[in-house]
Design a protein around this nucleic acid. Structure first.
Lengths: 289, 289
DNA sequence: GTTGTTTTGAAATTTCTGATACAGGTTTTC
DNA sequence: GAAAACCTGTATCAGAAATTTCAAAACAAC
């Protein structure tokens, strides 16, 4: 056990220790640990009863947890949290070096760094007017909205659909395979919006779908990577997202960010009609149970 | 709108109020006030007795002080301090993003800030051992991997499936509805891994699926929010992600981050077998064209 | 299956904290 | 200078919170 320096910038934070010992905990202890880490350290400043209730375990389990961490009792534990918090808040260094990426899962941390970089780059490269125009389009109740995507991005289209379909009507998901959408195309026209997700290894069938829809007079919104899918040629609006990651696969986090931001904006804009819809859905869900 | 503006720059801090009302305090109250301000807000987080001793006054005087500030009692007072502290500590993240949110789409920029904050918090709260254990599990060719999720998170499960299915064999997606998976359960056993996505408004059918699978001897991996789905009780591994966003919906970006990081790690680990598989898929795709 | 071990929560117990009543002292006011 | 109003601390109480005990349940090993 080497004796680390006692300098204030160093943080042998309790959180770190917990993370490190996580696998040696019992199931109940893990629940306590997760709760604490998720709201570190505030979750631990409540009473034992409150903490136990939030973690979904019993009070004694909480006590055993803190004892296991080496504290004499719950008050001791809380005192430590307070002191740690105070030290961290007072130390200006703490703010400078936020993430202790020293050890642990370097893979996860560096991956996250890359993704965060993507998000920032994505936001900066989006034309605000373009974003707003898409929001306006998706908020127009007269338009019918269809979502589609490729092998991987299809999941994002589904994600968008599952939210939008609650917020407004006339929302659906179109499978990528031509055989599945060819027939529908006769009904597609000026009042339809196609939101297409398509990134590198652009997918023929999605491209074909958008081209066909455009010919019918539909409006195409494209979410793609910075190299732009060929769909950009026919798309009315294009929102590119950075996708590079330290992986053999691209990261879709930027696309998800745009998707969620769009959904949030549309929900806000249609709030008067969206709210009762959301409540109705909630009611139906509870009835089923 | 019940809640006053949540804007971070605003500071209706209790400290400010105390400073303002300072001259209307009695001598004892002033001592209490000074102590509190000198170590704000930590001095107030101790017990009444401790606080009284440090301030050099009696416990009842402390009680009168907090009552005078408008709190129902000492616990109320402490709760307020904790909440204020928490809000203050979390806000720097929001400010951190110096993206030029001045113009056009402030919605997008602030949304991105919140998401980035989520990602950081998510990474910090993941136990490396837990992450690694999940990677090992998903990299085990003897295990069969099944992915599932709820209304919204189902899309993430599909996203994971579409990647994993290329990297390794025995990967599939299970629809949430019990009618669709009940039959399959007879084949689920010790050699099966269920990766479940479940966030707030935890979904009964997904919970039921995991419980059933656990009884059959399967291993459950759970990706959830910090409040932990009930599935955590039966899950072998739990990876929580922060989901709060300035929206009527939660953000799944943290879950996506974890998903992509897992896929990246598994791909790397299984690279020897994954590479030929990926090439084969590529070949098939080009042939079809 | 059966046994031994570990984990867990309900309930009883103990400790301690926050709250209150009251009396002594101080300042204010006429 | 006396009375009133006001602070303040001591002693005490009520209640809540942490802790311990113990038996049931889950789990693992055989």
């Amino acid at each position: 056990m080497r004796r680390a320096s006692r300098n204030p910038s160093e943080q042998p934070s309790l959180a770190e220790r917990i993370r490190h010992e996580m696998d040696s905990f019992t199931p109940s202890e893990k629940r306590a640990a997760h709760l604490l880490l998720s709201h570190y350290p505030f979750a631990g400043l409540d009473t034992v009863a409150e903490f136990a209730a939030r973690a979904g375990i019993s009070a004694p389990s909480v006590l055993r947890f803190v004892t296991r961490l080496g504290f004499g009792g719950f008050p001791d534990f809380q005192k430590h949290l307070r002191e740690e918090l105070e030290a961290q808040l007072l130390s200006p260094l703490a703010k400078a070096g936020p993430t202790d990426k020293s050890q642990g899962a370097p893979a996860l941390a560096s991956f996250a760094d890359a993704v965060i970089g993507n998000l920032k780059a994505t936001v900066e490269n989006i034309a605000p007017a373009e974003f707003d125009a898409v929001v306006a389009l998706l908020s127009d109740p007269r338009q019918r909205v269809h979502l589609t995507g490729g092998r991987f991005t299809g999941a994002l289209a589904r994600y968008a659909e599952s939210h939008l379909r609650i917020v407004r009507s006339h929302v659906d998901f179109i499978e990528g395979q031509p055989a599945l959408w060819r027939d529908r195309m006769i009904e597609i026209g000026r009042r339809d919006v196609i939101v297409a997700f398509d990134i590198r290894r652009y997918q023929e069938d999605v491209i074909a779908l958008c081209e066909t829809a455009t010919k019918q007079g539909a409006t195409v919104v494209l979410l793609t990577d910075p190299w732009l899918s060929p769909i950009a040629r026919v798309a009315r609006h294009v929102l590119p997202a950075h996708v590079a990651a330290p992986s053999n696969w691209d990261s879709s986090a930027g696309l998800l960010l745009l998707t969620e931001a769009l959904v949030a904006a549309v929900t806000k804009r249609l709030w008067d009609t969206a709210k009762p819809r959301m409540e109705a859905v909630e009611r139906l869900r509870s009835e089923r149970t």
